Simulated scan of single mutants.
Amino acid sequence: MALAVAKGLQVARAPATAEDLEALETDVLAGFVLARAAAGFSDGTISAAARPDRPMSTAP
């Protein structure tokens, strides 16, 4: 039963064009940049507090 329902959801589409793939690449890259910005990473570096190879300082 579930297989019949899933097969009914398939939509016939034309193959992806170069423009479609370029638009997808742009959207994925923009989403990645937005996610990093939302997480607090602005220029590709990790803040000193988040680096696992260095202990956090306890100095005031």
Rank of each mutant, 00 (worst) to 15 (best):
T17L: 05
A49I: 10
T45Q: 06
A37T: 10
A30R: 09
A50Y: 04
S47Q: 05
S57G: 07
G40Y: 00
G44F: 05
I46W: 02
L21R: 12
L9P: 00
P15K: 06
G31T: 02
A39M: 04
L29K: 14
D53G: 08
L9R: 07
A59G: 00
A50E: 14
D27Y: 10
Q10D: 13
G8P: 10
P60K: 08
D43K: 02
T17K: 05
E22W: 03
A48N: 11
D43Y: 03
V33N: 13
P52W: 08
P60E: 10
T45S: 13
F41L: 06
E19C: 03
D43F: 09
T26A: 15
R54M: 12
T17G: 04
D20I: 00
P55W: 03
E22H: 12
G40N: 03
V5D: 13
A16Y: 12
V11A: 11
S42R: 14
P60C: 02
A48I: 10
D27F: 07
R13I: 12
L29T: 09
A23H: 05
G31M: 01
V11I: 15
S47V: 06
A37D: 01
M1R: 15
T45C: 05
G40H: 01
A30M: 03
A35K: 06
S42L: 15
A12M: 09
G44H: 03
A38W: 06
L9Y: 06
A48R: 13
A6D: 12
A38G: 01
V11H: 08
